[in-house]
Simulated scan of single mutants.
Amino acid sequence: MESWHRNRLSVRQAELVEAWLPGVSLVTDLSWNLLDTAILEVADAADGQRRYIVKAAGPSNHHISREIDAHESWVSVWSRQNRAPMLVQSDRSENILVTEYLDGSLVEGTAAEYCPDTYQQAGYLLRIFHEQTARTDVDYEVRATAKALSWLEKPHRISKSQVEQAKAVLGAYRPKPVVLVPTHGDWQPRNWLIDGSELRIIDFGRYDLRPAVTDLCRLAVQQWKSHSYLEGAFFEGYGTDFRDSELWNLTLLREAVSTAAWAYQVGDPKFEAQGHRMLRDALGNFS
């Protein structure tokens, strides 16, 4: 078997790709190298111009399954407009999927990252994604709060005083039923592409049904924090600022705790530092 996958895939995963795309060749390895997820841009042997993205991971990685869920449920609202990639093949048992390659450059690190039109489009695209279905869940907030508390019991570098503050806030919270909608889970410029002036969406490894506000956390603590005009542009596209102050503040706190702890565990110091900034700001909402 050709070694185009350079040991990124298991033998069985490579066999599946060869069966789906005979004679495929590697174009670029796009893997992040933090987890065991392989992200490979490949070309079709019959037509070198036709490219695909192969995503695969080990058996304990849940991101591929979530991505398949997203493609099999709600991503088509974007992919029909060429705003997200189409699913080509997948195998849940082997934790692998293939999508069509989507033209465009990552928004993060470019002028588009601070362009109001980017955020107006992001607001519109997120609204049509959120609007596809909704259901009330009486236990979601209980589960989410318990998960945040569990992060504080795992290895991290959060200070003792902040741990105590976070536990006090989370312990005093009385969860209520919330409405869940399809969410991307990592809605930010590193998962957006710009092709000309058109915004496109990638990476559904954190897809799930959650409260809509959870998709705003990344932007609120990053781009909106330093460039507030982008927040206004986003809600112009979305249509309304739907944040409830109590749920929003609790969501930011839980996100901060999980970010700081998770980033420490996977060895991402930059993201960990962001998590600590988020935690400081989130706790300030309760002081």
Rank of each mutant, 00 (worst) to 15 (best):
D215W: 01
E236K: 00
H63P: 00
G185S: 09
G232I: 13
N33F: 00
L35E: 15
A111D: 15
V98K: 09
L252T: 02
R277S: 12
N61C: 08
K167F: 00
L125H: 05
E100K: 12
P189C: 12
E153N: 11
E141F: 00
A112M: 12
V169M: 04
L279I: 02
S93E: 14
V11Q: 13
A46T: 08
G123I: 14
S10P: 01
R50A: 08
A112L: 10
K147R: 15
A144I: 02
G185F: 10
E2P: 04
E131M: 11
P116K: 09
A111M: 10
M278D: 07
N61T: 13
L199N: 13
P85V: 11
R210T: 03
Y238L: 11
G205I: 03
P189F: 08
L102G: 02
L9E: 10
S31L: 05
A70K: 09
L180D: 07
I53C: 03
L247C: 02
V42L: 05
A144P: 01
G104H: 11
E236Y: 01
A263H: 01
G48A: 13
E18G: 01
G23P: 03
K225G: 00
E94L: 12
A144Y: 06
R277T: 02
A56I: 03
G237V: 14
D117G: 05
E164Y: 01
S90P: 02
N95F: 05
T110I: 02
E153T: 10
G205L: 04
T28S: 11
A256L: 04
L152C: 07
Q121E: 14
L87S: 08
S90D: 09
E113Q: 15
G48I: 00
L180A: 06
P155K: 10
L250Q: 14
I68M: 13
L125R: 06
E164S: 12
Q223P: 03
V24I: 08
E18I: 02
Q265S: 07
S105A: 14
P22R: 09
